[in-house]
């Protein structure tokens, strides 16, 4: 078996886990939300169905959601490893996972206006490789559905309508506005990944990378940690609720990062992730061992 085939096989396993096994911290957040909603309410019903669905998908190893989304992967690899090989192997893994119904054929060629049928197309999947000094390979991936991707938003500060200036208070205002605008359309209760600074491309990418974080982690930067907690609390006062049915559980978590910006630009990029935050992460050691990460 060639190295590419070996990595393809490993990546298929990571994809299978992402598509079918919802991370324990997300399940716990959904359960906490359910407990807070009133008995008999539409919100409670919606969360009951969601939790039943999570169990079914886990037991059957079938996709949690039929929109298996854009596969986004970040790979850390040892010095000297071919990033081209890793990209090829991951793309091949997407095709294999699609043929096994772990993923839906989810890539459309917009020029031909046809579904490619195998899950891959230019830009899909998105593979980011970064070299590091360790001898293991670490893979962290997301499956991000189209419904929630469509409600992402990018703001350019200042924004007079929101009374948002070029400062952290302005950033908070934009993120809360994005949550309001999303309503239930991104499959609330959602998880917010945000980035301030960067350019239009890098800002969105960093906002998505934030979604790899566990819901119960805390931002090591005190300013950002305070922002994350404040936005989470305020967002859950909006009353949008699960699916936009009304209720207390609008957002499960807020994760914020930042990048350098140009003097002329101040972007706030907000990525909305549906409740089905399909994350998976694994570490492959040189001896072939695999360790699953949270």
């Amino acid at each position: 078996m060639t190295s590419t085939e070996q990595w393809t096989e490993r990546f298929v396993e990571v994809i299978a886990r992402a598509s079918t096994q919802l991370a324990p911290d997300v399940v716990a957040a959904l359960q906490r939300g359910r407990a807070e909603e009133e008995e008999g309410s539409l919100a409670r019903k919606a969360l009951d169905t969601i939790l039943a669905n999570v169990d079914l998908a886990r037991d059957k190893w079938q996709p949690i959601c039929q929109d298996t989304g854009t596969p986004l992967v970040w790979i850390h690899h040892p010095v000297g490893m071919s990033t081209r090989m890793l990209s090829q192997a991951f793309t091949e893994a997407v095709k294999v996972a699609t043929s096994r119904q772990l993923l839906r054929p989810n890539a459309v060629d917009p020029l031909l206006d046809r579904n490619t049928g195998h899950g891959a197309a230019p830009g899909i999947p998105t593979v980011h490789c970064e070299e590091w000094d360790e001898d293991a390979v670490e893979v962290r991936m997301l499956l991000k559905g189209g419904g929630c991707e469509n409600v992402g938003a990018q703001y350019s500060l200042p924004n007079p309508a929101l009374k948002a200036d070029r400062n952290l208070e302005g950033v908070k205002r934009c993120i809360l506005d994005a949550i309001y605008r999303a309503q239930g359309k991104g499959c609330a209760p959602g998880i917010i990944g945000a980035c301030f600074g960067g350019d239009r491309g890098s800002g969105y990418l960093e906002s998505k990378r934030q979604l790899l974080r566990r819901l119960d982690d805390r931002n090591p930067l005190p300013e950002l940690d305070a922002m994350e907690q404040e936005i989470l609390a305020k967002a859950n006062q909006l009353g949008i609720g699960p699916m936009g049915f009304g209720g207390k559980t609008t957002v499960l978590g807020v994760k914020i990062g930042y990048l350098g910006r140009l003097p002329a630009s101040y972007f706030v990029s907000v990525s909305y992730m549906c409740w089905a935050n399909r994350r998976a992460a694994a570490r492959f050691s040189p001896d072939g061992g695999v360790q699953w990460l949270d």
Partner: peptide
């Protein structure tokens, strides 16, 4: 309004596929 993302619960309610139109033209989804 169905519950977004509840793909397994809802697939369990689908008991039979009778027929399909425009499969070759539009693809599965």
């Amino acid at each position: 309004h169905a519950i977004g993302g509840a793909a397994q619960v809802l697939a369990e309610s689908v008991k039979k596929v009778e027929t399909v139109f425009q499969l070759a033209e539009f693809g599965v989804p």
